[in-house]
Design a protein around this nucleic acid. Structure first.
Lengths: 225, 225
DNA sequence: ACCTGAACACCGTTCAAGT
DNA sequence: ACCTGAACACCGTTCAAGT
């Protein structure tokens, strides 16, 4: 964004910069991190690199290919997830929370994979670790696979929706509150129109899934069994 | 798409078509239904209507305003949801399933509200009905509001993620299956690489939420309480 | 009040041509 | 192998001008 000079865009003092595919990807990534996906264009990228537009195409292909490469790069950069906790539910929750944190620290990934129709890119990295942990909890075969898929979908759905929410909704809560006729108490109505505690919803749903999917690993509340 | 003639684009036999705001919205909606949001452009819309591009702007404002109007129009068209079933969980599940079906029958809405950053538009129509039903189940105040938000987020997250998934993932399942070292049984691995049963995941998670949120309305499995 | 031609400032992508 | 100028076929948006 800042520099427009044609020569030496990297700040390297040497001769005319040798543009590589990696350089192109890195620059594109930085531009998207700074100004978002919508502001990005192939022409701006070329300008930032100090080369003609066709050069970009020569190195990384077209827009779609470039974006897909970026998605892979980001998911690869995700750390090896180390589950913490003693019980399987704790360890699985730990995986989910870690990935949620990592994805949130790279908001571009969500926007990127949404525009590319590759929403599953968000949770691919958690799959293997999760599968391992689910197996350790005593599930096998189809049951285990279903448990993994359910947890991943909760994670992915939450992330994508959170990204898609309007800023208005995030700070103001549910605005459209039709049908005054139905008997809803005041406290509830007020709460609904306030800011939503996204993290609490995430953890609560995850707990509900885990309790349901891992069977009765927890004692029954009523009978104390 | 088909007709390109400048006069009488509506097929009405009378004089030069009187373009109204409603007419513009309807035509835009049809174009998006037929060819998707990505293929849509203000210029194509004008051409389809048989008018100059500025005319479209005069009637419905710019692209963003047009899209937001379309989102509101679609959500308004959602039928009044009539919950079915005898118990609160059944009735709440009925609401969720109905809305999921209605949203799926209008895939443009999801794409539209995603591009506009208005993801909550997907579930706004279900809010009131859901709040009523949750209240009927015995929850009040903050608890009830939290339950509503949790159910809505599950619904919205699922829909947005489903829309964002790559066709590849939908038919082939989890491709990237790293870390062969971890002990995962064969049956599980095979299952994970097959097509995911989205609807089953949706229902299962919803049930888990309901069970957790509505308290012990169901007998305990172990002790039979 | 409603509509137009023409322009401005952008896009993604390709192609022949250069070194 | 790497890079360019120039073009093609698009965009969204606006503005002065018409009726």
């Amino acid at each position: 964004m800042a520099q427009k000079r044609k020569t030496d865009p990297a700040g390297v003092g040497s001769a005319s910069a040798p543009v590589t595919a990696d350089k192109v990807l890195a620059t594109a990534m930085k531009m998207i991190e700074d100004d978002g996906v919508e502001a990005f264009s192939m022409r701006k990228l070329a300008a930032e690199l100090g080369v003609g537009t066709p050069t970009v195409y020569w190195h990384v292909g077209n827009r779609d290919e470039l974006f897909n490469k970026l998605i892979e790069e980001i998911t690869d950069q995700f750390g090896r997830i180390m589950p913490e906790g003693d019980t399987p539910p704790e360890r699985i929750a730990s995986i989910s929370n870690t990935l949620l944190r990592e994805v949130r620290s790279r908001p571009q990934l969500v926007a990127l994979s949404s525009t590319q129709g590759r929403g599953e890119a968000i949770f691919t990295k958690a799959q293997a670790v999760l599968a391992h942990e689910v197996t350790a909890s005593g599930l096998h075969g189809e049951d285990a696979a279903f448990a993994v898929a359910t947890i991943l979908f909760h994670l992915g759905g939450f992330i994508v929706l959170e990204d898609a929410l309007s800023p208005d909704y995030r700070v103001r809560g549910a605005q459209v509150w039709a049908q005054r006729d139905t008997e809803i108490d005041e406290a509830m109505s007020i709460r609904l129109q306030q800011q939503v505690d996204l993290d609490r919803i995430f953890r609560f749903t995850l707990d509900a899934i885990l309790e349901s999917v891992l069977g009765n690993q927890k004692p029954c509340d009523v009978c104390g069994a």
